[in-house]
Design a protein around this nucleic acid. Structure first.
Lengths: 168, 168
DNA sequence: ATTAATTTTCAATAAGTTTTGAAAATTCAA
DNA sequence: TTGAATTTTCAAAACTTATTGAAAATTAAT
């Protein structure tokens, strides 16, 4: 397999993978392209390599920057802006975890806490099932939250090293 | 807040939450409804409570069954089929992890292995970056896979207990 | 200041996904 | 068997989300 073929395959699969996790296909593809590009590249490079419009590139690179996965780079003597992605996969994943936690888990925890305060007789089986379910999810999400916090703060070798040793 | 309000809120938020993770809104809502229903319920109950069509209920309950999150229950003397969901959140999440691993992570790992075999000079910086990226992702996904395997096999109190103690 | 290059915005459109509902298939009691 | 109840299927419609592209805004060189 040539590099060109492999790159195309990687970008396309990464995009498909992203959609299964609620990430827009193009955003995932741009990210994949930047991950395999050793040097920073421009909007036009991305447009050309992925055959997508300027607007699309612009919006999705902005989102990637908001997610903390991509950076704008200014190259001396160049008029255009260049983009580059963090290449360390551990950093990439902790950054994604950090953002999803902030955007989704934290609001979910807040909601669950509110839902725990309902009027009604705890002996009623509907009330009981509701409180048990909400309480159970809240406890679980809370614990997951803690584990992810540790993971995000830790450094790769320490975290995975310890975990794998621990579970051997 | 009344039970009815809280249930509606829970179901609607759970649906919205699901879409952010690549799960169809209705499937997540049906799951939420079943999670807070102490007794098994029928297609018609689901149709009525969520105001959705019969076909929709049928397709999404089938998917939930395929995911191993919902079961058909036969109630003696009843002609209709009833549905019920696993209520233990730990079991629910390990089941989801198991399925997503099988459906997505495993194929991704297989692809990454193929992409590691490319023709070309490893001194070329494009080839090098590609191999480093693919190799790094593969290593990371492989390790995550191992940790998830342990988690899926473990029982809740053991796993979270140990992990939380370990990281204190 | 002017102008050319570049980036950003966003309404219109396209593409993708979900939902409906009625017809077909299945199930089961009489 | 027959037929009523129930479930399943799937093409068409509705809805949601992503993409385009051209105009507006911004930037920076002259």
């Amino acid at each position: 397999m040539t590099l060109t073929e492999a790159k195309a395959q990687f970008i396309s699969s990464w995009g498909a993978f992203g959609t299964q996790w609620g990430i827009n296909r193009t955003m995932a593809q741009i990210h994949a392209l930047l991950l395999v590009s050793p040097e920073p590249i421009t909007q036009d490079d991305i447009m050309e390599q992925l055959s997508i419009s300027r607007g699309n590139v612009n919006m999705n690179t902005r989102d990637l920057i908001d997610w903390g996965l991509v950076e704008r780079v200014l190259i001396p003597g160049e008029r255009k802006e260049f983009f580059t992605a963090e290449k360390d996969i551990w950093k990439v994943s902790t950054q994604i975890i950090k953002e999803r936690k902030k955007r989704e888990l934290d609001p979910m925890l807040k909601l669950l806490s509110q839902l725990e305060n309902i009027d009604g007789d705890k002996k009623d089986k509907d009330v009981k099932q509701f409180m048990d379910t909400v309480g159970g999810i809240k406890k679980f999400v809370g614990q997951a939250d803690k584990v992810l916090d540790v993971m995000v703060k830790a450094d790769e070798s320490w975290f995975l090293g310890s975990i794998l040793k621990f579970f051997k």
